[in-house]
């Protein structure tokens, strides 16, 4: 248990804060590097070794920019949106097990907690779209909500499939139950569907209709500048990390792996999934919103439902 130990709390808070910041720096760098290499470019090269400190430099620049709000904007919503988008991340990071012992705090319902908090990101996007009194913003916010309609049910059904196998909502126990065989091999269909769902959940290309640059300028964050703008990016990259960590726990056996220490394996698997998402982004063209809804309801939903029922009947027999 479950002791309230002040030192542990302080270490966890600092660890999570560090993880959120470091992850953003790393993933932004990885994304820009990958984008560059996939287009035969170098990507950032100037600041630090191969541009690794570029994100920090950008951050310093962004802090020194003026925060501008449109004169007709709903100021309360406008200011609240980036905060609402970012804050739940910190709670969602709480139950993620980096190894059997390294985690901020274990709860029996960690899986549900992370899934429930994932919604608040979309709430932040919606508030941004509504608050900024901009047509592009409004369209982006509405599209983000429309996205929930497509991915949420297949996502929950794959989660149900995993919970059936593991018999627990605790992320640590789910990871522990895959000591031998990873769920990705036992449930390849669920794994694929979950990957599609987390790309949808984090508003990443090819499902980034909420910020489609070619049609909506920048979608929900069109009117945001400086630090408020970077909050959305911090939130996006942190949600990517949380979603990938959840996928690692549920399908890739969490921290299990030979030779290397457990947390290293965990981080490696998470970053492999993050790289996969970045790879998707620079490969696939954006889909239309009706295509996304159709895919969610006509492909992902039936397949995940059938997969769930087959798993259930096999386990019942």
């Amino acid at each position: 248990m479950k002791d309230i130990n002040l030192l542990h709390i302080v270490i966890s808070l600092l660890g999570i804060m560090g993880m959120v910041s470091l992850n953003a720096v790393l993933v932004v760098w990885l994304e820009r590097k990958t984008a560059g290499r996939m287009q035969f470019r170098h990507g950032p090269m100037e600041v630090g070794f191969h541009g690794i400190l570029q994100t920090l430099a950008d951050g310093i620049k962004l802090v020194s920019k003026q925060l501008v709000a449109p004169s007709h904007a709903d100021t309360a919503l406008f200011i609240m949106a980036p905060v609402v988008s970012l804050v739940p991340i910190f709670v969602a990071m709480m139950p993620i097990p980096f190894s059997a012992t390294i985690l901020a705090h274990e709860t029996d319902t960690g899986l549900l907690l992370v899934i429930a908090l994932g919604l608040l990101n979309t709430l932040g996007i919606l508030l941004a779209g509504w608050g900024s009194d901009n047509k592009y913003g409004l369209l982006g916010g509405t599209r983000a909500v429309g996205q929930i309609l497509a991915y949420k049910i297949p996502l929950l059904l794959t989660v149900l499939t995993i919970v059936i196998l593991a018999g627990s909502f605790s992320l640590r126990e789910i990871a522990m139950s895959q000591n031998g065989l990873w769920n990705a091999f036992m449930q390849p269909v669920a794994f694929l569907i979950y990957i599609v769902c987390i790309v949808l959940e984090t508003n990443r290309s090819p499902f980034d209709m909420a910020e489609a640059e070619s049609e909506l300028v920048a979608g929900f964050h069109t009117e945001y500048s400086g630090m408020a703008f970077s909050m959305f990016f911090l939130a996006e990259y942190s949600y990517m990390f949380v979603a990938a960590a959840l996928a690692t726990v549920m399908f890739l056996g969490g921290w299990h792996g030979p030779i290397l220490p457990a947390p290293i394996w965990f981080i490696l698997k998470v970053y492999f999934l993050l790289f996969l998402m970045i790879w998707f982004r620079w490969t696939f063209p954006r889909v239309r919103i009706d295509q996304m809804l159709m895919m969610g309801w006509k492909v992902l939903l039936p397949i995940s439902l059938i997969n769930f029922l087959i798993t259930a009947v096999v386990l019942a027999l």
Partner: peptide
């Protein structure tokens, strides 16, 4: 995805 990963692993042109 095969096309892009090949591009990524090949030499940069810039």
């Amino acid at each position: 995805m095969k096309v892009t990963i090949k591009a990524m692993l090949s030499r940069t042109q810039t």
